[in-house]
Design a protein around this nucleic acid. Sequence first.
DNA 1: CCGTATCCTCCACGATACTG
DNA 2: CAGTATCGTGGAGGATACGG
Lengths: 149, 149
Amino acid sequence: MKNKSLEEMNCPIARSLEHVGEWWNILILRDAMLGTSKFDDFQINLGIATSTLTRRLNGLVESGLLDRRLYCEKPPRYEYKITQKGLDFRPVLLTIMQWGNKYYAEDGLKMVLVDVASGQPVDLMLVDRITNSEINTQQHQTIATELKP
Amino acid sequence: MKNKSLEEMNCPIARSLEHVGEWWNILILRDAMLGTSKFDDFQINLGIATSTLTRRLNGLVESGLLDRRLYCEKPPRYEYKITQKGLDFRPVLLTIMQWGNKYYAEDGLKMVLVDVASGQPVDLMLVDRITNSEINTQQHQTIATELKP
DNA sequence: CCGTATCCTCCACGATACTG
DNA sequence: CAGTATCGTGGAGGATACGG
């Protein structure tokens, strides 16, 4: 971030903000947890400028929250997969989500928790973007939904 | 924030970031939950420019996370107290804190949970800034500490 | 003492154009 | 299609001076 002193603040919250404080990062992580991994998918989903997306993705890779992996050799193609450190950030997104649901869901659009059969306790998804029919039911099972009217 | 489109994003996370995404806001809320309420206390604690602090405080008041109250008539003095909406944001800070403790506490400085006798389950405090002796023990009781060496 | 107003700087972001 | 490079700008933040 702009202020170097954040790192010197010796507070875990302040230091965390150094790496995820930019709100684009939060939204990129959100989508990464939802399964997005390709550059263009992020770009289309978020409506972010490509140059900005490059910078943010690189920053998140540098911070160890995303992993850049070559998945195709010819032509070289990369995907951005969430790391364990990034997954550990999920509770933060969940609590932001709950707070946002309470105070900023006037139009009825909320996010919901889904049960992940793979063993992980909870995951998050945006209701109007991933409909129930689109969910890989082997991986996800909706346990609560509040759909847009 | 700079981008109006965040509000139009129809996602509770995105909308929340509209109000608390600026990292100064997070730190101000952190201190407000720790009991800070006076302008100068925020300023000294955070090392923030006074003009910036004015802007951020006003923004948080506008967003309904802080409440500006006149507590002295002559001369007029105001204090900034956290609102219920602000208190509801506390779980977010707690999860950020936990994540920060895990990944950004290399120097041993962590935050801890304290039991609030007033009935609320948990509160947070910064270990090196509020020592045990300074805690209002009627209000707080430390249940876990990991102090800087 | 408790802020606010003003000016300035800088950088995150967007737009655009470009490469493999 | 999957990005990177470059340029211009708005606004957040800092420094300073000032008002109640």
